[in-house]
């Protein structure tokens, strides 16, 4: 079970964090970043498998791959922005975390615009 590894590593990291936070805050923060990256990389293999399944289903259903890759990109941007903003929030810089989330929202919006346009065009074609 991978969850046991992650919980154990998380608890150990928390203890080291408490120890290091007293003397050197920089190392405590970098410890957090390293832990977050390790958990993320551990989960990435599983996410890849899930995305592969979705891709196969979309191929079977004859869905345009452009929409699926856009959705994957949006999910990826959301994950990575969450990762960054949570680390910034941990370090106490709320404003930088807010900026990261803001940028992620805008970039997701830009990626989503072609899908929105396609939906609107379909609706307009349906309405005579």
């Amino acid at each position: 079970m991978e969850i046991m590894q992650i919980v154990g590593l998380g608890l150990i990291t928390t203890i080291f964090y408490i120890v290091l936070k007293e003397q050197k805050g920089v190392f405590a923060l970098q410890l957090t970043i390293a832990f977050a990256a390790i958990v993320f990389i551990m989960m990435m293999g599983k996410i890849q498998v899930i995305l592969q399944v979705f891709e196969d289903l979309a191929l079977k259903a004859n869905i345009n791959m452009f929409y699926l890759t856009t959705i994957f990109k949006i999910i990826g941007i959301a994950y990575i922005a969450e990762f960054g903003s949570q680390i910034c929030r941990d370090a106490g810089t709320e404003s930088i975390a807010g900026k990261i989330e803001f940028a992620a929202k805008i970039i997701i919006m830009v990626l989503a615009i072609p899908i929105i346009v396609a939906i609107l065009e379909t609706i307009i074609r349906l309405i005579p």
């Binding site: 970098q30 990435m44 890849q48 990826g76 941007i77």
Partner: peptide
């Protein structure tokens, strides 16, 4: 010096993570 050494490790880890995410989500 300690901060720099640790930063090297963290940055390598992060670069690996970003490459992985980029390849998985086809960014």
């Amino acid at each position: 010096a300690g901060v720099t050494v640790v930063l090297f490790m963290v940055i390598q880890l992060l670069s690996g993570l970003f490459d992985y995410v980029r390849s998985v989500f086809s960014l």
